[in-house]
Amino acid sequence: MTTDKLYIQPLTTVSGPQAVEGDAVRLAGGMVYAREFAVIVRREGAVVSREVVTADGIEAALARLPAELGAEAEMQWSNLRMAHPPMQLGDRTVRLDQPQVMGILNVTPDSFSDGGKFMDDPEAMRSHAAAMHEAGAAIIDIGGESTRPGAKAVWEGEEIERVRPAVEQCVAMGAVVSVDTRRPAVMEAALDAGAHIINDVSALRYDPRSLELAASVDAPVILMHAPGTGEDLHADGDYDAVLFDVFDMLREVRDRAVAGGVARERIVLDPGIGFGKAVSDNLALLNGLALFHALGQPLLLGASRKRMIGALSNEAPAHERIGGSLALAQVGMDAGVQLLRVHDVFETVQARNVWRGMRDAALTDFGGLVD
């Protein structure tokens, strides 16, 4: 029996609902207002229907769908308008009604962005973490294993030795900390050291014990899309339509986590830019980011200094990709993404603050309206 799949994709945004006489909705409770939506039905990998409507016409469009898609349609439309509550992390609160910046702290010898300088020099690591925290990073994301293509696997004991001191240092300075790992022993050690969030690039699939651990704690869990299931997360990146295929897989890993005991309100989703994806795949995902709000979870975008920026800018090396990283951060903000995982915190926070000021001003700007 053929099962149709539905996608409600926000297509256009406006400065505020008053600009279009109320014909727009607040996307995911943030600072972005969506006006036009594509209601898409896919069957066996192929799009069989697509209707574009404004917010005022969405109910009629959903009513025209096959009856078996009715519940899913109502769920996705509700999800798109869902306001996500703040994350309460110890005595710190991270609001999700505006973009927040997550600073990257790699304590690995082979990081593509910093060459391992923060693993061998504890003072440099502490200074860099403090600078990100002071610059406005809401979260510091600490990783002890490189997940770039071709990187060697790390023994979990060694990963713990790299991660735990960094977590302790960041927690001591008052930072909210996430641990970027796919190994349950590392997750547990980091949480015991004071980390607040689990960030798993394998979406709790690398080790079955990860799901058990995530279900047993109160920490939020970030589930990222990667096509590979073993050591190589970049393997098997073959897509019929990457935007819809990644949406489907993120729904699957979310539902698997919920079935395994992880509270749905603790799940954040990440489309996995650069993981098993060609430049064209990444661009398709970035252009369609707003679709993922239909899953009803907060979203994280990790595109900072990724290889695609070099591919689009004369193969600029990682440390010369700040401009491209800021451009992609703005793409994420314009799509209503709640968390931006970046290397260049000061610059991204500044860009976010200017973007937020523009959004605030737009809501009170009635100069274009007729009395």
Rank of each mutant, 00 (worst) to 15 (best):
D248N: 07
R256G: 01
G144T: 07
L89E: 15
D334V: 00
A214Y: 09
A60D: 15
A34C: 08
T229D: 15
R95A: 07
N287G: 14
A214F: 11
Q350N: 15
G228L: 10
D232K: 03
V163Y: 07
A263R: 14
R254A: 14
G90H: 04
D114G: 02
D240C: 04
L105V: 05
V41D: 10
R64Y: 01
G274Q: 04
E51P: 08
A214E: 13
V47Q: 15
I222M: 14
D371F: 08
A226T: 12
N79Y: 03
S210Y: 07
L299T: 05
G116V: 01
G336R: 02
G332K: 06
L223H: 09
R50P: 04
A63S: 15
M1R: 12
N287C: 10
E72S: 10
A219R: 12
G143W: 11
V14P: 12
P85R: 07
A294T: 09
L62D: 04
S49D: 15
I197L: 03
R43H: 08
G274C: 03
M224H: 11
L233T: 11
V107F: 06
P149Y: 03
D23A: 08
V179I: 13
D121A: 11
T93K: 07
E123S: 01
P271K: 05
P86Y: 12
D270Q: 12
P184G: 13
D91Q: 15
M132A: 11
L105M: 08
A61H: 04
A151Q: 00
V186C: 15
D218N: 14
E134C: 03
M249H: 13
D255P: 08
E168N: 09
F346H: 13
A351I: 07
M82K: 15
M82G: 10
V25C: 14
G276C: 09
T229P: 06
L301F: 10
V14L: 15
P85E: 11
D365M: 02
V48N: 07
T364W: 07
V370R: 14
I139N: 02
P271D: 13
A71V: 15
Y33V: 04
P271A: 13
G90C: 08
E347W: 07
L339G: 06
D365A: 05
V242M: 03
V262L: 06
I309R: 09
A294Q: 12
Q9R: 15
S202N: 14
M87K: 05
A316C: 09
N79P: 14
G237M: 01
M125C: 14
A137N: 11
S127P: 01
A175H: 05
A189L: 08
A129Q: 00
V217W: 01
A138N: 09
E158I: 03
A189K: 08
M87D: 04
R92M: 09
D218W: 03
R164Y: 02
L243M: 05
R256K: 12
V163D: 13
